[in-house]
Amino acid sequence: MSLMKGLKAGVFAIGLVCASASAEAYKIYVTNEKDNTVTVINSDGWKVEQTLNVGQRPRGILLTKDGKYLLVCASDDDAVQVFDVATLKLVKTLPSGPDPELFILHPSGNPLYIANEDDNLVTVVDIVNNKVLAEVPVGVEPEGMGISPDGKVLVNTSETTNMAHFIDTTTYELTANVLVDSRPRFAQFSYDGSQLWVSSEIGGNVAVIDPATQKIIKKITFDVPGVTPEALQPVGVRVTKDGAKAFVALGPANRVAVVNAKTLEVEKYLLVGQRVWQLGFSPDQKHLFSTNGVSNDISIIDVAKLKVIKSVRTGRFPWGVVATPD
């Protein structure tokens, strides 16, 4: 049976490759928090291909390292749902602990680390064996999850405690707790592991932390003419692979800030849709996608030109976004 499935999938994949005009085509998956759906967009023409029904209040979304499975935090179902990318069918549900919001995979592809917002926990799940490996108590309202490139350090941000918690991934002990500004939403390591970026939504800044010393190198603040300072609420952060640029979604300011990741200076603000929260790169990092929760769309940013080239309509309250090669 698995052979049959494999064959079918193979045939299907070949079919797609042949049908696709561009060899670089890929798919973009967007969780729609209020619609309980995932919008599937094809990069070839930026067309919505499908709208997939998922669990309740889908937020965090990612792909397994082999690109075969799509993982969705169905927050109100207290579960992480696993979809087969080839068939877009639900294949299993992972134990996640209550109210999973954001998660991250170990660089090796397993395990999965989940922030349980309601329970002040980070749950560690073996995604192959469907088993909870550990529950790590952290601060109040854990949300942001980042992992060092070597997989040794997991960082969780707690929105009410206002800390970045450094967790040793072998012992599950907290090794450091770095106080940042109000409502830290997101944590991202640079690809070389030398920087940890933590956004503070209410604090209105992004702290760049040296993971080795756990000291804040700089708090990056934002300033957009005509936008009240209170509306500058950083959430999603993405750093390019070459470590040159970082992008910061600024929530109700409807802007994505472009930051020079070397000098840590803001270089530009890109106008996107309303209430921009999360960001995701295309597989080749030529494009960046922003989820715009109030305008119900994603903006597509050309990373080289630093221009917004298009917006694509999604479901209601698009939350998370991830892209995978076709």
Partner: peptide, 10 residues
Amino acid sequence: RDNNTTGRFL
């Protein structure tokens, strides 16, 4: 309770 969860670290 929330303060004490944070207080654990401090």
